[in-house]
């Protein structure tokens, strides 16, 4: 399959994984391996002296590039500080920018996200912003220098799939940076649909980590992303109102 390129960096896998929700680091490790992912998100939190094992060890052992996020931030200021701390802790200037508006929906706040994106781009970060399925905002963030845009399919952890495929198509049509479908994926067909709509990659966590068998679902997602990408490249047939015979009609 063709490579995914973000900010000049090449990835063979178009499945980006999150690490939230896994019952243990062992389960997470197995799921990440099964997914074939090469880029995986982590969150930044206060160091817990009692914690044993680290998600970073898992990523390092599997040679997976770490993508810190700013999950838990409600303001641009918080997100910028979190990104700077992540850069210091992890030695990467990549950041998945996530500024949420409220805890009930976890929907991204467009104003704070745009503000933070501008500040982080100016500070030399490779910024991948998590946004609503808003074509206008996606375009503005691309113009502001973001390396990709990450529209949601549905709220984080909801498993509702892609609620507005039309808007995702509009974002894809206008974008010249990668479009990564982020959040809302519930099962493999959702991930395949994202790729068929023209997204360049899919980011998911809960659908795998909270599945009854995370490693099996990770394998399913890997196949779905590949199938969806191939279908997109192949070019689907137009939808028709009536039948079109595939065999000659005259005997």
């Amino acid at each position: 399959m063709d490579d995914l390129i973000i900010a000049g960096e090449k990835f063979t896998s178009r499945l980006i994984m999150g690490t939230g929700g896994a019952p243990s680091l062992e389960v997470l490790d197995q799921a990440l391996v099964a997914s074939g992912t090469e880029l995986t998100t982590v969150a930044m939190r206060r160091l817990d002296p009692a914690a044993r094992g680290s998600v970073l060890d898992v990523l390092r052992r599997r040679d997976i590039k770490v993508l810190p996020n700013t999950a838990g931030c409600f303001t641009a200021g918080d997100a910028v500080l979190t990104a700077r701390l992540a850069r210091e802790a992890l030695g990467t200037d990549w950041v998945k920018l996530e500024v949420i508006s409220d805890e009930r929906t976890l929907l991204p706040d467009p104003i704070e996200t745009f503000d933070a994106a501008e500040r982080l781009v100016a500070d030399g970060f490779v910024v991948l912003p998590y946004i609503g399925d808003d074509p206008a905002l996606a375009r503005r963030l691309e113009q502001a220098g973001c390396a990709a845009v990450m529209p949601l399919g549905a709220p984080i952890g909801s498993g509702l799939g892609i609620r507005n495929p039309h808007n995702i198509e509009l974002i894809v049509e206008a974008a010249s940076v990668p479009v990564i479908l982020d959040a809302g994926i519930g099962t493999a067909s959702d991930a395949a649909l994202a790729m068929e709509l023209g997204c360049d990659a899919v980011l998911l966590a809960t659908a795998v980590t909270r599945a009854q068998r995370p490693d099996l679902m990770a394998t399913a997602m890997r196949g779905a992303v590949q199938a969806g990408r191939l279908a997109r490249l192949a070019g689907r047939i137009p939808r028709r109102r009536y039948a079109e015979a595939s065999s000659p009609m005259t005997p």
């Binding site: 690490t19 930044m44 939190r45």
Partner: peptide, 29 residues
């Protein structure tokens, strides 16, 4: 709320009432 780079930890003294945050990566996202 200001990052202190690792190279300056040894030479940066704290002052009374300072708020120190020590962060690391955890599962998330």
């Amino acid at each position: 709320d200001e990052v202190v780079t690792r190279g300056t930890w040894e030479t940066t003294p704290l002052r009374d009432s300072d708020r120190v945050e020590v962060l690391t990566a955890v599962q998330g996202g």
